[in-house]
Design a protein around this nucleic acid. Structure first.
Lengths: 173, 173
DNA sequence: GATAATTGTTATGGACCATATCAAATATCG
DNA sequence: CGATATTTGATATGGTCCATAACAATTATC
């Protein structure tokens, strides 16, 4: 740990920006200052969303369900007999992109497409028995492993306030 | 608007799921019930994030800055003289993906890569004069058109509480 | 009954993200 | 010192998600 090239360091005067900091001979890597970034709602919002999705995926690893797949199962359970266009659009998914998602769920026998007798163009969506069973287990996993951690972190009251504000943004912004 | 095939409708008994609802001759499209979905933090979080980013892009249309580009400019302004690896990693961007992002900003003369004299492998990042000017205008746009709407919607106190909770999730989850 | 609209689907391209790999430069250690 | 390992920026590549156009089958409209 020889102090050889210590001829720079506190030359923090604008005029020579070709230095940067040397960390090898000096202190720690010196984390960057986030500055106004930590006040930008969009930035913090996205980072939080990534963390939540990441944790969700870990909790659902045993069931192999993504957030999108879980949302489809939830919505179809609550609204059986709706067609692809309806389910996709309320989830903000475009019909073309919904096809592969459904193919996946159907191939795993979690939900089924049924030709409607009213309108033979459309496919009615229903959960299979296996789909209902998996969804029940998924809900338990989410409640015990996922949402519970959020309650720990924020507290029940804050978590509800957070949900309310985010809903407001999602619906009225 | 003839009432022709009105032989279905309230056959809401499980057993024939091939009907679905007919809306043409009857009422409105009948929006789906979100059910537990509206309580799922991940779902609401993502929808809110999309709305915020969407609004951000509209506000920044005149400057052609994406949220990611804006965050880079903010971070480089606050931490001039850092290299690509440092800036990228604090933004959660992988180095390979940071290259094109920087190519874009540099081609628009908003920031510059400067070979470091200490470590000739690394590129020191600095805002150009134009970059500083654009960032100043960008900040004003964000403050007046973007964040202000959030304050209207949530109120100042709530907005700060929201930021604090999201930061907690982003950092401690 | 001709025309328009809807549904599910395919194809396709763009944006973003992740990994492996490389050359140049530097650090490490015998 | 010199061989080896590490770091930095970069390229190539593949995956996932998102968006648009287009199509056949079916239904609605006039």
């Amino acid at each position: 740990m020889t102090v050889s090239k210590t001829a720079e360091k506190s030359s923090e005067k604008p005029g020579d920006a070709t230095k940067g900091r040397k960390d090898a001979a000096e202190g720690l890597p010196e984390a960057l200052q986030l500055g106004e970034l930590s006040e930008q709602l969009g930035y913090v919002l996205k980072r939080a969303q990534l963390k939540v999705f990441e944790n969700f995926l870990r909790c659902m690893a045993s069931l192999q369900l993504t957030p999108a797949q879980f949302s489809v199962l939830l919505l179809v359970e609550k609204n059986p007999g709706r067609n692809q266009t309806e389910v996709a659009s309320t989830l903000g998914i475009l019909r073309p992109n919904f096809v592969a998602l459904l193919d996946n769920l159907e191939s795993r026998d979690l939900c089924a497409r049924i030709r409607s007798t009213n309108d033979r163009r459309s496919h009615i969506l229903v959960l299979t028995d296996k789909g209902k069973a998996v969804l029940t287990r998924a809900k338990k996993l989410v409640a015990t492993k996922h949402e519970s951690r959020l309650n720990e972190l924020l507290g029940q009251a804050n978590r509800e306030a957070l949900l309310e504000m985010l809903s407001k943004i999602a619906n009225e912004f």
